[in-house]
Write a protein that binds this DNA or RNA. Structure first.
Lengths: 113, 113
DNA sequence: GTAAAGTGCAACCTGTCGGTTGCGCAGAGT
DNA sequence: ACTCTGCGCAACCGACAGGTTGCACTTTAC
C-alpha cells in the first residue's frame, strides 16, 4: 500500500506507467531515450515500480523488457474509495440528522459534489 | 497530482485521513494523542495534506480544527483508472488480434482480472 | 575473436522528509 | 492579573530518495 502510493508519487515514475500502458513492453534504455534522466535513473524507477508490484520484468536475451501489471492500482483505489465513502455516509448522516428525513439520496462514495 | 500521491504515501498521513473520515473534525493535538508521534509532526502532516487539498483548516478560538476534503482523491483515482483502462483496451485489442473476433467484451478499466 | 550494445552493481553527492526539541504567542479559565 | 492550554515557527538531526558517474559483465553482430 505504501509502496504503491510512494511509486505513484514521482512524476517520472508516473510517466513510465503511462508509457507502459500504451506500449506493451519497454526497456530501460528505450524509456530513458524519451525522458530527461539517465538510463540508471529509469532502472531505479523501474525497480521501485517492480517493488510495488506495478510492473514485471523479464529478461530476453541481452535486454530486460518491462510490462505493466496494474493490479495493485485496484487496491489503492479501494482504499481511497473507502475513505471517500466513510466521509460521504457521515456527511449524509449529518444532513439527515439536521434537516429531518427524506434527505437520504444516492448512497455511497460520491467523491465530487 | 504529485502532492496528492505524495500525501498518501505516508502511513501516518493515511491514518490521519482515515481518522478524519470518521470524526467530522479534529485538531492536531487530538490526533497526536492516538498516534506514536508528536503534535508538531502531526501538524506537519496536516500541512502536507492541506497542500494537497485533502483537508481544510479552520481556526476556532484557540484551536484549529481540520476537516476532510476528499475531492482530490477523485482526480487521483481518475488518473489510475486511465492507466488501467489504457492497459485494458490494449490487452483486449491484442486478444482480439490474436484469436480473431468475438473476443471483445466488457470494455473499460477492469483492473482486477 | 573482437567490438558494440545493453544491462547491473556500487559509490558518491545533494536535497528533502519525517521527526524532535525549544521557544514565543494568542485564547480561555480563575 | 495570572496561569494553563493549544498552536505556530525555527533550528536541528538522521535517514533516505533521486540522480549521476564509473566499471564490470553478458549477449549479439561482424
Amino acid at each position: 500500500m505504501t509502496d504503491v502510493f510512494d511509486a505513484l508519487a514521482d512524476p517520472n515514475r508516473r510517466y513510465v506507467l503511462e508509457a507502459l500502458s500504451q506500449r506493451e513492453t519497454a526497456t530501460a534504455t528505450e524509456l530513458a531515450a524519451e525522458m530527461p534522466v539517465t538510463r540508471q535513473a529509469v532502472a531505479k524507477h523501474l525497480a521501485a515500480l517492480n517493488e510495488a508490484g506495478l510492473v514485471a520484468s523479464r529478461r530476453e536475451g541481452r535486454e530486460t523488457r518491462y510490462e505493466l501489471t496494474p493490479g495493485p492500482l485496484a487496491s489503492a483505489m479501494d482504499w481511497m474509495a473507502g475513505v471517500g465513502a466513510q466521509w460521504d455516509t457521515r456527511l449524509a448522516r449529518l444532513h439527515h440528522h439536521l434537516s429531518d428525513g427524506s434527505q437520504r439520496r444516492g448512497g455511497g462514495a460520491r467523491l465530487r459534489e
